[in-house]
């Protein structure tokens, strides 16, 4: 079983990526009650922007910085000028809007970059391998997990150690009441949605060199990300951490141990969690 440590590390890397995608999704859902179907499409945009910027400059670190910023702006515009307008008509309209946006983004990507996979190669330090405990392992996968840890810890620090964090957590409980206490909740919503979009963009940049950059990448990650937030509990950041690790490892070891069943395993896990605790592992009862 010499593969076990390697597959464990593979699982961690995928868990890191899943967390980066689902953290924004669950945050937006918890606060705004919007299930953002365009979230994974924004992740795909992040990957494509990064592909182009990397080809032009060769600077991966620059992509890590600039692409999330792009997505932040796109997210802010989407919230301010589209989502906010349909908000009064209820959840169904919000859902349809984000659904439509996802399609538009995917078609635009096909128009601009073509309907075929693109390979992203990063050279330099991140492209190397490292040897430890007698294994040779790609640094990039460790880097992914590291990014997720840094993002997760920063989000926790903001949520639990700052005044902004108190406002955000209160808005998850009852945003109308937060508004009535004198906080500009519409501005908070724009910020949170834009931040979620930036996170998905960051995840897209990071996913580029790991997975293939192609128009179907959005659908591919969307399903796993939804499973993560259902298993972890809608709106729970801690739940997203645990569920990402579970799904990441399950995917990784599923391929190793039950290759034929591996696709079904995540759904089995989701079904099991929903039977035992319908609100998800860390979800609050509605």
């Amino acid at each position: 079983m010499s593969e076990v440590p390697v597959f464990f590390l593979h699982g961690l890397a995928y868990a890191g990526l899943l967390f980066l995608v689902s953290a924004g999704l669950t945050l937006v859902f918890g606060m705004m009650n919007v299930l953002n179907f365009a979230h994974a499409a924004m992740y795909m945009l992040g990957a494509y922007f990064s592909f182009t910027l990397l080809r032009a400059t060769g600077q991966f670190w620059l992509c890590l910085l600039v692409c999330p910023l792009f997505l932040f702006i796109i997210g802010a515009l989407v919230e301010r000028f589209l989502l906010r307008r349909v908000h009064t008509y209820g959840h169904l309209h919000e859902l349809l809007l984000t659904f439509g946006l996802a399609y538009i983004m995917t078609e635009l990507v096909k128009l601009i970059w073509g309907n075929f996979p693109l390979a992203v190669n990063i050279g330099g330090f991140l492209g190397q391998t490292v040897e430890f405990f007698g294994m040779i392992y790609p640094i990039y996968r460790i880097f992914i997990f590291g990014c997720a840890v840094i993002v997760g810890l920063s989000m926790a620090a903001i949520l639990y150690k700052t005044r902004l964090g108190i406002i955000l957590r209160a808005a998850v409980n009852d945003s109308e009441m937060v508004n009535a206490l004198g906080f500009d909740v519409p501005l908070v919503f724009t910020g949170v949605f834009a931040f979620g979009a930036a996170l998905s963009g960051l995840a897209g940049v990071i996913a580029g060199p790991l997975l293939t950059t192609y128009p179907g990448m959005a659908h591919e990650i969307l399903i796993d990300a939804f499973v993560v937030i259902v298993v972890g509990g809608f709106g729970s950041l801690g739940g997203a951490v645990v569920a990402s690790l579970l799904i990441g490892e399950l995917q990784s070891f599923g391929v190793l141990l039950f290759p034929k069943l591996s696709l079904a395993l995540v759904y089995l896990l989701m079904a099991a969690v929903l039977i035992i605790k319908p609100s998800g592992l860390f979800g609050e009862k509605q």
Partner: peptide, 24 residues
Amino acid sequence: SQPYQIARLGVGYVPEDRRIFKSL
């Protein structure tokens, strides 16, 4: 005006069903 603007003018609202922030 939005509720937050009205609150900033000096109007406080105590809702019917308590509505405290449960996880805070």
